Simulated assay, not measured.
Amino acid sequence: MWHRGAVEPLDASDAPDAPVPPLRVAESVLREPAHRVSRRAVVMWTVQALVVVALLLAAQVVWWLVDDAPSRTPHWVVGVVWLAAGAAYAVAMPQWRYRVHRWEATPRAIYTQSGWLWQERRIAPLSRVQTVDLERGPVAQLLGLASVTITTASAAGPVTIHGLDAPVARELVDTLTAAAVTETGDAT
């Protein structure tokens, strides 16, 4: 739960040319959201990464077949680089995303943290929620997972939580929908 507090004023001793320190809200700390996504999300992200790697290797094979150059050395070099980079991606990315992805729903807002190289924290007030959607792709369905997308009246776009257990996702959709309906904001 977030705490409300007064904004502390800047010290009068701060020089005009000094960098402006961030505003501090008394007794408030932007912490990580409380809930992790399902551990099975690692499997889902690994499968998705392997699909990308397979497509890159398929493109490599097509290049091999259509190229009539006398030397195949560039093909081998590029193929080995793609394979090594793809293997590193398929192993590291899902684990890192799992460590970063978190979510939390409060009576007033939905709070998410996502990404792996580019990380993002978003807080969407329920008064701004326009739609709440549950999505399940083929891999997610096999693993019993789902994603929840919350569309808000924000230029930043929707908030999506990937890799939730399907029952948790359904409950979150029901809870957010009910809370958004009772919220008095205009969602615009």
Rank of each mutant, 00 (worst) to 15 (best):
H162C: 02
A58R: 03
L126P: 05
A84M: 10
H162T: 08
A155Q: 14
V80D: 03
T152V: 00
R136Y: 00
V139A: 07
V129Q: 08
D68M: 04
V62I: 12
S114C: 01
S147W: 06
V81G: 04
L126E: 12
G79W: 06
V81H: 13
Q60G: 13
T152Q: 06
A88I: 01
A54D: 02
A87W: 12
T106V: 02
W96K: 09
A109V: 02
I150A: 05
L83H: 03
L134C: 04
Q119P: 01
W63M: 07
P107T: 09
A88Y: 14
V52E: 09
H162N: 11
H75A: 14
W82S: 02
A92M: 08
E104A: 09
R99Q: 12
R97M: 15
P94V: 04
G163C: 04
I150Q: 11
T112D: 12
P167R: 10
V132S: 07
W103N: 11
G157N: 07
Q60Y: 00
S127I: 00
D165I: 00
I123K: 05
G137A: 06
S71G: 06
R102D: 07
A54G: 05
E135F: 04
V159F: 04
P94D: 08
V100M: 11
V81R: 13
A156P: 00
W64Q: 05
D67W: 14
D165T: 01
T151E: 10
P138H: 06
I110F: 11
P138M: 06
L65E: 11
L142T: 03
V100K: 07
V159I: 14
R97I: 03
R121F: 01
W103M: 10
R99Y: 00
E104H: 02
M93R: 15
L134G: 03
V159C: 08
I110T: 14
S147K: 08
Q130M: 06
W76F: 14
T149C: 00
R72D: 13
T112Y: 07
G86P: 03
G163E: 07
L143P: 07
A84C: 10
V91H: 10
R128V: 03
R108N: 06
Q119A: 02
I110C: 10
W76C: 00
V81D: 10
L142Q: 15
T149S: 15
A140T: 02
V77E: 11
S154C: 01
V132E: 12
L134M: 11
P138E: 08
L143V: 08
V81W: 05
A146G: 11
I123D: 07
P125G: 11
L117P: 02
V66I: 14
S114D: 09
W103A: 10
V53Y: 04
R99E: 13
T112E: 10
W96S: 05
Y89C: 01
L134S: 03
A69E: 13
I110K: 09
G163A: 03
R99D: 11
R97E: 12
